Simulated scan of single mutants.
Amino acid sequence: MARELSHVLGGTWREEQSPLADQLEVLTESSRLWILVEAVTDSLAFRLAEHADLGRFLLSFPTWTITEVMGGIADRVSAIKGKAVGELIVEPLDFVARNALHVRYARPVLTSLGPWH
């Protein structure tokens, strides 16, 4: 499936060895995806809006819950009647930490959240 997903989104894929489970990582050329939000718990379960048949995906973080990263998302999704659709964006962030080290990372942001028609 990772091979097919990388074909749809552009990019490359690789298999990750994890003590918890087999995981596939797809590095896409796109920093934006339209998604169908299925559930918000400690993670974000979703399908690709235009390729829902590819299956369910899970966005999670080992040290944070999804609500810490994407504040208010559970309330925003539950306010929508029926299926929710949104644009998942990877936003690059740069800052200087207290120890004067330059930190760069990518933060997921869910925008344009609304009902799926």
Rank of each mutant, 00 (worst) to 15 (best):
P115Q: 13
L36Y: 11
V103A: 05
Q23L: 13
Q17H: 10
G86R: 05
E4A: 14
A100C: 03
Q23V: 15
V96P: 03
A52F: 02
D22V: 06
E15M: 07
Q23T: 15
G11C: 12
Q23C: 13
P19Q: 12
L9N: 00
T65L: 06
E87F: 02
E68G: 10
E16S: 09
R47I: 01
L101C: 11
F46K: 07
E4N: 10
W34Y: 10
V109R: 14
A21L: 14
L59Q: 02
V85L: 13
P62N: 00
V40T: 01
S31H: 12
V69M: 03
S43M: 04
S18D: 15
F46T: 08
A74Q: 07
E25M: 10
I80C: 06
E50L: 08
S30T: 12
E87P: 00
T41W: 02
L27H: 00
A100N: 14
N99H: 00
E68V: 03
L58S: 06
G55M: 08
V96L: 07
E87H: 01
V8Q: 12
V26Q: 05
L20I: 14
D53C: 04
E50R: 10
A21N: 11
F61T: 00
P115Y: 08
T28R: 02
L5K: 12
I35M: 12
M70E: 02
P62Y: 08
S31E: 10
E38R: 11
L113V: 15
L20F: 14
V8F: 14
T67G: 09
R98E: 06
T12C: 03
W34G: 00
T41G: 11
H117S: 12
D53P: 01
A39K: 14
G11W: 04
R32K: 14
I89A: 13
T65D: 05
V69W: 00
R32C: 08
L9K: 01
A74E: 13
T28M: 04
W13G: 01
V37Q: 01
A84R: 08
P92G: 05
G10N: 00
L33C: 03
V37F: 06
V69T: 09
I35C: 01
L48S: 10
R47N: 06
T12V: 08
W34S: 11
E68W: 06
L44H: 07
G72R: 04
L33N: 03
E91I: 03
A106D: 15
L9G: 07
A21T: 09
G114Q: 01
V40D: 11
H102G: 06
F57K: 06
A49T: 00
G114W: 04
F95M: 03
A45P: 00
A45Q: 11
I80N: 12
T28G: 13
I89W: 08
